[in-house]
């Protein structure tokens, strides 16, 4: 069962687990500090295809097949497939899903899609509507640049605050069979608009959304940040992270900088000079599903709160003078201690 606590937080009573995950990344991400933890990578942005759009489909297919293979189940056992990406009409996900025999749900909340999908599928798994639900999210640097910004070879001098869209895809299998990582609770965020207009500064635009989701979650659960080993945000980058930590300091939470981890900063390392960090729908899942879940499996972390942040950057709306609305969805993942002690009761 799923129980509602507070206005926008739900707790999953019936255990619900992340059975297996798979991540595929692009060349730049593979060369980054986390390169060794990803399951697979592509050598160039085209992935052997003729265009970026096709390359992104390839990424999704690779991640999905890898995930099913690692989980050791047959394709017929997957009851539901939910996916999202940044392209308009979720084209990548739909094309990739057309090669797969699963019932499909597409969802979009920009870069926050991954955690939205985890929460939605965890809901249906815990209600025992389905046994195994597969999710995937993807993004591609070339596709995103083409759709949201300028052609990739076009001259551009970005400010320090600009972020780079992560090339990659992350897939996860959410299932009712006991596994090392459990999904405990989730919070759906409200859409926050702090009147930021600059599309090269999404980190600071999204920080208030992340703040509101984390704050609402902690209040609803009656917890403090000390109850978590890490508060993970999706793609706030350097400047968004400082903004988030400052917002918490205003709230009287001083130690946020010790607990806070940002996937966008992890993926390219802090030494990257050209970008403030990674962004994109794949940024949060590839880091969370690989590195952070490994920490949960080995016991370095016991409980983490992952908040994926998304900003709606629509060319037409921005050019008509509108601001950037942002949303953040958070999910609590915990190490399944019961399984660890050998009495997994599912």
């Amino acid at each position: 069962m799923v129980q509602r606590i507070g206005k926008q937080t739900w707790v999953i009573d019936e255990p619900c687990f992340i059975k297996e995950t798979a991540t595929v990344v692009g060349p730049d991400e593979y060369e980054g500090p986390l390169g060794h933890v990803f399951d697979d990578h592509i050598d160039d942005l085209y992935a052997g295809q003729s265009s970026w759009e096709k390359a992104e489909q390839r990424l999704v297919q690779k991640a999905v097949s890898q995930c099913i293979k690692k989980a050791g189940i047959s394709e017929a056992e997957v009851d539901l497939y939910a996916a999202g990406d940044l392209m308009s009409q979720l084209a990548t996900s739909y094309y990739a899903a057309s090669q797969l025999p699963f019932p499909f749900l597409g969802a979009f909340s920009a870069c926050a899609t991954s955690m939205q999908l985890v929460a939605l599928t965890a809901m249906s798994v815990s209600q025992r509507m389905v046994n195994h639900a597969l999710i995937s999210t993807s993004s591609h640097y070339g596709v995103a640049e083409k759709q949201f910004r300028l052609p990739i070879e076009h001259v551009k001098q970005r400010p320090k605050t600009a972020m780079k869209t992560v090339t990659g895809a992350g897939a996860a299998l959410i299932s009712s069979t006991p596994s090392p990582i459990a999904v405990q609770s989730f919070t759906f965020g409200r859409v926050i608009d702090w009147k930021v207009k600059d599309p090269t500064d999404l980190g600071q635009a999204m920080a208030p959304a992340a703040f509101s989701t984390i704050d609402d979650h902690l209040q609803a659960m009656g917890e403090s940040i000390d109850d978590y080993d890490a508060i993970v945000t999706g793609d706030l980058s350097m400047f968004g992270s400082t903004q988030l930590q400052r917002l918490f300091r205003e709230r009287g939470v001083e130690k946020m900088d010790l607990k806070h981890i940002d996937c966008g900063q992890l993926i390219y390392g802090s030494g990257s000079k050209t970008f403030a960090g990674g962004s994109g729908a794949a940024c949060c899942p590839v880091v969370t599903f690989s590195s952070l879940f490994d920490h949960l499996r080995t016991g370095k972390y016991r409980r983490i709160f992952v908040v994926a942040t998304g900003a709606i950057v629509n060319r037409s709306h921005l050019q008509q003078g509108e601001t950037i609305p942002c949303v953040a969805h958070g999910v609590v993942f915990a190490r399944n201690e019961a399984l660890e002690e050998g009495r997994g009761d599912g």
Binding site: E153, V155, K156
Partner: peptide, 29 residues
Amino acid sequence: YKKLSRIFGAGVIVPITGFTNSLASAAME
């Protein structure tokens, strides 16, 4: 050219070479 533009900014945009780049890059894309 885009790598040069990251460093030199308007230095490679304002000359006529920048106009060529904006046409060629859009066509390539």
